[in-house]
Amino acid sequence: MTELSQLIVYGLATGCIYSLIALGFVLIYKATEMVNFAQGDLLMLGAFVAVTFILTLGLSYWLAFILAVIVMAAFSYGLDAVVLRRVIGQPQFSVVMLTIGLGFIFRAGATMIWGTEPYNFPAPFSSGVSVVGGVVISHVAISIVVGTVVLCSILWAFFRFSKLGVAMQAASQNQLAAYYMGVPVKRIFSLIWAISGGVAAVAGILIAPLTLVDNTMSMLGLKAFAAAVLGGFGSIPGALVGGILIGMIEQVSGAYFIDGSKDIAAYATLLLVLLLRPQGLFGAVGRKKV
């Protein structure tokens, strides 16, 4: 029982990271119907920026955290305003490829700016552990879960109560209608990119104490992509549940099935879910109108 609880703790922590990245995917997809394959790269950039603030400029963890999120949000806003806005209305897969190309550039740029050596990410709580009823919980894991919960609450409140949040919801539900109602759709899209970039930065900084910071971090995006689809691409609660589910499934299958099944359990589950419920767990059923 202790063992299962321990697995759940591990799964929850990794799952939360998948959730956060998936959230970034979904926010952008919901609003603009673009699939942003560079989400993992934004996460990597966020972690690198935070590393610079902490190691080079000597700022404190918390200040670096906030600044890195702001920098990444601004960067993503600019990215949409300068690059992605130009391809609105172009074939969907061209846009996907565009984000893949951007991913290439981000990774190359990160190597040029920060070099090829991996960085150790210092966090104030990186080596702490607590033991609750025999289950070991590292403080990094706690920080990830708490960070995810806080971020999601903020986002939920923002979308629910602020005028801007409601405008964003409107724009993602029906662009044209929102536009006629006076919502500046283009700027809203850029703002959604900004939120998504900020979320990626949060995910990157939260997971950085667990891994080294280098450009292989961007590979996390792939598994999170599976999480987003599992939950139903385009559903925010879906992304969160999907991420945590994948984190858990990985841990449990790794412990109780044949060795190596941890790596493909996520994808096998995904295939199964797609066969049984093609629109994902939380996706809306919809048939394209003609």
Binding site: E3, Q6, L7, V9, Y10, A13, T14, I17, I207, L210, T211, T216, M219, L220, E250, Q251, G254, A255, K262, D263
Partner: peptide, 13 residues
């Protein structure tokens, strides 16, 4: 584990 894994909790258990 896979080279890209970020978590080895299960393995250690």
């Amino acid at each position: 584990h896979k080279p890209t894994d970020t978590d080895l909790g299960t393995q250690m258990i």
